[in-house]
Design a binder for these strands. Structure first.
Lengths: 341, 341
DNA sequence: TTGTAGAAAGACAAGGTTGTCATAAATCAA
DNA sequence: TTGATTTATGACAACCTTGTCTTTCTACAA
């Protein structure tokens, strides 16, 4: 605790006095502007160091209309995904002198929430994860404030927009093909929340893999989940109760897979002996369950880092309008095994 | 993306012009100061609304030396704990017009990192979780900036300091007593990272419970863990390999418990049939493993909320110097069962 | 009516920085 | 050396609020 008046920090004027130059020259040195003699620069830097001078962010922000602060918007605060994005973003921010303020958007009026958020903090940019990044009101709010944003895994990328994503389609196809390579033909898919880009693309990848292998798409083997544990158990229940039951389950994410796993344990169905289970995400959940999950490792931290790098370099770098697709990786765990006849 | 100039927002001058009053009067209305006629207030508010005026945070911060921004410092970005604290804090912040900027401190020079952080962002307060909150350099840095802070579960509370914590001692005692009530006498304890307040207090609670029950403290039944999955497996290995093996394991946290669980599954030791396992935290991990863990639910979000409330009310409320101990709760899962002879 | 107290409103400065423009110094060519 | 050109530096305004102090208005008592 210990309240108390903020320490009087040295101002640019103090530095100028001590260095025997004008404040403008100090400003030039601090901002790495040209037209400063080396000798002068040294004098100023010495004074800065001696006084422990730190630029006042408010004054700077007021004058320059730049805050050096970015925002991170997301909806669901649970799980590793948002936290990892946050920490990736944070790491890159720190490296470049930026800071990050986070905001969780909830409920119906996300547009208003965004407006309030943006008007209260003058952010230099915003990054957002699904499903917030697919909310038109949120995007509109950003646009109306003229705040640049980068979307992570958006559902419908706008033309010319630079966004970041992984190839959910390819990843899901890989998983499905991997399961088929183990001999599985009856593969149950537990979908994620309807409408999510990930849900849609992963379903498409799953279907593409089946089709390529000449396996007929069976609606009984698709369960409408919600990325949560319980839906994994429900999905497993459906798939295992079929006349021709599934021998493998591809869950929408790790948590769902954990649910399926738990149901199997409950019913005495051996994993991976009688049932193979795959997850998606590669976070903590996939590592703490038993048996350790076969899953797709998303480069979640990297998503955050890259998003921030785009925002920060938006001004300088020539704006490439290509999406950045980051690599995923199929992690073979202990929850999948060859089908036994 | 869509870079571009920030939208020209209305200033206080515009509002004053439109309302036909001076800027100072507008300022008074905005800040809910007295001495404004109701009629005038209405005029001003109408103008504010019409123009969509939003106070410029930089100008305000520059003049008032208050940022309405709080900081959250922590070290280990993994797991539910920091994320939950963050979201609790965030919720309270939003309710009171504050924002939250997060910073992860890593490595040796946390003091310097804190100094840099504080000088770059003019925070109105800082909250921190263990083990950052026990780092003297960090505390010193905060003090030298005159930034008030609240520590969550500090190891050695300073006299008169208002901090927040749960009663780790009592919680650990409860867990141990619960296990003993099931008939267990050989209870292995997997400790957390040495030096952490939680580690120390939980060990003490464990010992106190044993002592009270007249059970001799056995060093073979204490394993030095680190709050991670692997140490759970190692601990279980040690305990189950004893001549007189443990029949129950009390892990330092849920992740460690998951490790113990996995080891047991691996070796075919039935849980809870042959071995009971308890965790600590009550987060996602405890719910996704099978069987669902018996654990201690920490009010993690509430810790964050309460910490922020203390910071925000520090100026106004009469500063109570009592620590705030938030309630924990023993959650009986499916990973514990009576000892079978 | 006059005087007075208190409430309401305003004028002005200050806060620390950066942008614009002007000036001083250094460099170079003739 | 002189004049022209480039480079380095400085003076000053502007950014948008809020704090201090002053002025105006209102209400009420004498």
């Amino acid at each position: 605790m210990s309240a108390g008046k903020r320490n009087a920090t040295a101002t640019i004027i103090d530095v100028a006095d001590r260095a025997g130059v004008s404040i403008k020259t100090v400003s030039r040195v601090i901002n790495d502007e040209p037209s400063v003699r080396e000798k002068t620069r040294d004098k100023v830097l010495a004074a800065v160091k001696a006084l422990g001078y730190q630029r006042n962010v408010f004054a700077r922000g007021l004058r320059a209309d730049r805050s050096l602060v970015l925002g991170l918007l997301y909806e669901n605060p649970q799980g590793d995904y948002p936290a990892d994005v946050l920490h990736g973003a944070l790491a890159y921010c720190r490296l470049h002198g930026y800071h990050l303020v986070v905001e969780v958007l909830r409920g119906r009026n996300m547009g208003e929430q965004t407006t309030r958020f943006l008007s209260q903090t003058r952010l230099d940019g915003v990054l957002m994860t699904p499903p917030v990044c697919d909310n038109p009101a949120v995007l509109k709010a950003c646009a109306s404030f003229g705040v640049p944003y980068v979307r992570i895994s958006p559902r419908k990328p706008k033309k010319g927009e630079q966004y970041i994503a992984i190839d959910d389609f390819a990843a899901a196809k890989e998983v499905t093909e991997y399961l088929m390579s183990l001999g599985h033909r009856r593969i149950g898919l537990i979908k994620g929340i309807p409408g999510h880009a990930a849900t849609i693309m992963r379903l498409a990848g799953y279907r593409a893999a089946l089709e390529k292998a000449g396996i007929k798409y069976d609606e009984d083997l698709v369960f409408r989940g919600d990325f949560h544990f319980e839906s994994g158990a429900s999905g497993a229940e459906q798939f295992l109760g079929l006349k021709d039951p599934a021998t493998a389950i591809f869950a929408g994410n790790d948590e769902t897979a954990a649910g399926a796993l738990a149901y199997a344990h409950e019913k005495g169905v051996a994993v991976p002996g009688k049932l193979s289970v795959c997850g998606f995400d590669g976070g903590t959940v996939s590592k703490v369950v038993w048996p350790r999950l076969t899953t797709v490792l998303q480069p979640t931290r990297l998503l955050g880092e890259t998003a921030v790098s785009i925002l920060i370099n938006a001004g300088t770098a020539p704006r490439a309008s290509t999406p950045i697709i980051l690599p995923h990786k199929l992690i073979i765990g202990l929850s999948t095994a060859p089908l036994r006849a």
